[in-house]
Write a protein that binds this DNA or RNA. Structure first.
Lengths: 208, 208
DNA sequence: TCCCTTTCGGTACGTTGTACGTAAACTACG
DNA sequence: CGTAGTTTACGTACAACGTACCGAAAGGGA
């Protein structure tokens, strides 16, 4: 009974994600989200506990977009596909991805994804500590790659930006040039494959 | 000539890092740092461009603490030691480490560290794309491990926290239990070693 | 119809980053 | 020794933020 809500929690989630995607993380304010929904700031608190909860909602929205790939025959390929799927979604939402890095990701959709990866790894010959290390490696590769790719996400800053091409860091500059010659997805796939080689006994480095 | 500064930029850096270490990231405000130095908020702007610059200063302070390990005979061990050194420092400053994940790390000390890692990798047989992938793998493993370790950094939240031990995520729960049986450092070492196995042809998985 | 429950939304307070203006402290020159 | 010039310090002030509080509005059950 009582007065009917003007919008649902899911609508808050959508509005927040759209706002972050279009105008960056700084635009994620209670007032902006409320305005997007055509209401006052305090109305949000009926659907969301506080600002941290709103951020968690955005993170959850991002991971909810992950589409579980159709299982490949090879276990290694299945794992790789799963990692790439997660990576793709995070790449599609670069601003929101920063939230993923900062917050503890206890969003249900994120946990579900982690569980899926853990289960997939469990179907291999890995057990115990080796299994744990494998999981950490893959998770780290996803998170770390996103972090590396995120670097140029911030616009402007042309003044402050330090040029790596300068002669101070020749090895870094060479790597930077090398990375410019590939697509980010291919680079990530190779990264995950390398990780799998180190982690799965049966994976062979031939196909790199 | 002119009026002498009351404190140096380095003092601002120190005060900011101490503040973050002791009272968390939320305590990193212009006013708090200024108070720590016994002055008004606006005085800071003589030494720091804006808040983002202050954060960059903290990140730089953290990476400046990395002590370059004495080179081991084995290249793989040298690389591993370098990664562990970086990881240790980030672990020593868990709150500041969050800044590292969010901001673009263009701090000179961070670039210097990356350059060192790139140079070290360059002494192996790796070249071109393999070299790039190796670099990305190691960097990702550091960043990703820090992100995983950072999870319980936030205090409180006992209400909101989702228990992974619940039966919803059995595979994750098993991994969580498994990780409780090791020290974080050993887990990170094993993670890096696994990464090296996948990346360096000559590294053998025997010593895991 | 009246009440009870739930949600809406306006007002308001404390805190944040920082633009602006003025006072203060030093050097150099006459 | 004073005066001009230059650099820094710092108080005031404002917009925007998160959110506590509370009356108004809207619908269901008696």
């Amino acid at each position: 009974m009582g007065r009917p809500p003007k919008f649902s929690r899911a609508q808050v989630q959508n509005a927040a994600l759209v706002l972050v995607d279009q105008h960056g993380l700084d635009a994620l304010t209670m007032r902006n989200v409320a305005a997007e929904l055509g209401t006052g700031p305090m109305t949000l608190y009926g659907h969301v506990q506080d600002r941290a909860d709103l951020e968690a909602l955005v993170v959850d929205a991002v991971f909810s977009e992950v589409e579980i790939p159709t299982p490949a025959p090879d276990p290694a390929t299945r794992i790789e596909d799963l990692c790439v799927a997660a990576w793709k979604v995070l790449r599609r939402h670069p601003h929101a991805a920063r939230l993923t890095l900062t917050r503890r990701t206890d969003a249900p959709s994120a946990l579900r994804l982690g569980e899926l990866l853990a289960v997939e790894l469990g179907t291999t010959t890995l057990t115990g500590r080796r299994l744990l290390v494998a999981f950490r490696v893959l998770l780290s590769l996803i998170v770390g790659s996103i972090e590396s790719d995120l670097a140029p996400v911030d616009p402007g800053d042309d003044e402050r930006r330090v040029s790596v091409t300068e002669s101070d860091y020749p090895a870094l500059a060479a790597l930077s040039a090398s990375s410019a010659r590939t697509t980010p997805e291919q680079l990530f796939r190779d990264t995950v494959r390398a990780g799998l080689v180190g982690v799965l006994p049966q994976a062979s480095p031939d196909n790199i």
